Simulated assay, not measured.
Amino acid sequence: MTTQYDKAKLFTDLHSPGKPLVLANVWDAASARLVAAAGAPAIASASASVCWTLGARDGGGLDRDRALAQTALITGAVDLPVTADLESGFAETAAGVGETVTALLATGAVGVNLEDGLDGGARELRPVAEAAERIAAARAAADAVGVALFVNARTDVFLRGVGEPESRLDAALARGLAYVEAGANGVFVPGTADPAVIAALAEALPVPLNVSGSATTPNVAELAALGVGRISLGPGLAEVAYAAVRRAAHEAYAEGTFGSLADGLTYPELNGLFRS
């Protein structure tokens, strides 16, 4: 069994600009086992996916205890490095973010995503200094227990459409650089698929750039050529899974047929993911 300290080093080493780490984000033990079996070198949760499976909305709808309990289920399901998406840290203050990170480390996780957007979906971000202070608190909490936690600082400038379009690249860079100064190991900039923007971010940031992967973004090889260090699928897998549930249920109730079930994994395949 690999130790948490070994996993932390491995996870950091997996981030290599130009040879990106691809993370197909999960939400429970079964999805973690399936992604691991597909050849993933590390496992990441997605906050939206975790929220939905627990019956909560993404963006402030879930409490810290339930989010961390779900993280513990994921870390317990795989012997791979696990990084958790903890939204903005489930805390009002920077000190509270530090407490969240301390609790996260107790689950065995070795990475965390912390975002600078405010809950509720408004086009508003925390002031840069405040967001940086929260990153610094996460870094300090990890350092206090001696785990080289990979702190991935997410800025939602593009995702939330903050400011005028022509100003967003500079704003995202300014925020990213401030977060790196505060102790972030990587910077996540979701919401843009523009190769020129991605290349500019990758070149200017002194840490690995994380971008989103979807049906409308460049593929892995193209993002690698742009200098990206990490690609996250976010809630994409959960969206596909729940679309399959809706499709099969609709067929059963509206058509009285069950053809969609032929596309699913079998009971033995799913049951075989677990030993007890």
Rank of each mutant, 00 (worst) to 15 (best):
275 R>G: 04
186 G>A: 14
185 N>G: 15
134 R>D: 06
51 C>F: 01
176 G>F: 06
228 V>T: 12
184 A>W: 12
148 A>D: 14
179 Y>Q: 00
200 A>I: 08
43 I>N: 05
90 F>R: 12
82 V>G: 04
150 F>Q: 03
241 A>H: 06
193 A>I: 12
69 A>R: 07
250 H>Q: 13
189 V>R: 01
200 A>L: 03
114 L>F: 08
234 G>P: 09
71 T>H: 02
183 G>I: 10
186 G>D: 04
129 A>G: 14
257 T>Q: 15
138 A>F: 07
275 R>V: 15
144 A>E: 10
1 M>Q: 04
271 N>R: 15
73 L>P: 00
188 F>W: 11
243 A>G: 14
175 R>C: 00
189 V>N: 08
132 A>R: 03
33 R>C: 04
264 G>S: 13
144 A>R: 12
184 A>I: 14
79 D>H: 14
134 R>E: 04
164 E>C: 00
8 A>G: 06
174 A>Q: 10
213 G>R: 02
204 A>R: 13
264 G>M: 13
102 T>H: 13
257 T>M: 11
190 P>T: 10
51 C>V: 03
12 T>Y: 15
241 A>F: 09
276 S>K: 10
259 G>L: 10
53 T>A: 04
176 G>K: 05
145 V>N: 07
139 R>K: 14
93 T>H: 08
252 A>G: 03
188 F>R: 03
62 L>N: 06
264 G>I: 12
212 S>V: 15
151 V>W: 00
111 G>D: 00
61 G>T: 11
73 L>E: 13
245 V>N: 09
12 T>V: 10
48 A>R: 01
14 L>E: 07
217 T>P: 00
51 C>I: 04
267 Y>Q: 14
165 P>M: 07
113 N>W: 08
61 G>Y: 13
197 V>M: 13
251 E>G: 07
223 L>H: 03
123 R>N: 10
204 A>K: 11
6 D>G: 01
16 S>V: 15
24 A>W: 10
165 P>D: 08
29 A>S: 07
49 S>E: 05
34 L>V: 15
173 L>H: 11
63 D>F: 14
207 V>D: 02
204 A>I: 12
270 L>S: 03
216 T>Y: 01
254 A>E: 15
132 A>Q: 13
66 R>C: 02
200 A>N: 06
263 D>W: 01
22 V>S: 01
47 S>H: 01
228 V>R: 04
104 L>T: 01
109 A>C: 08
100 T>H: 07
220 V>G: 07
169 L>C: 05
234 G>M: 05
83 T>H: 08
227 G>R: 05
225 A>D: 15
271 N>D: 12
7 K>N: 08
51 C>K: 06
52 W>M: 02
50 V>R: 01
152 N>K: 08
150 F>C: 01
144 A>G: 11
39 G>A: 05
23 L>E: 08
57 R>F: 04
154 R>C: 00
43 I>T: 02
248 A>C: 04
172 A>G: 02
170 D>H: 04
218 P>V: 12
31 S>T: 15
117 G>A: 13
25 N>C: 06
129 A>C: 04
47 S>W: 01
144 A>F: 02
11 F>L: 14
184 A>C: 03
112 V>S: 05
31 S>W: 09
27 W>M: 00
153 A>K: 10
100 T>W: 09
130 E>A: 11
138 A>V: 09
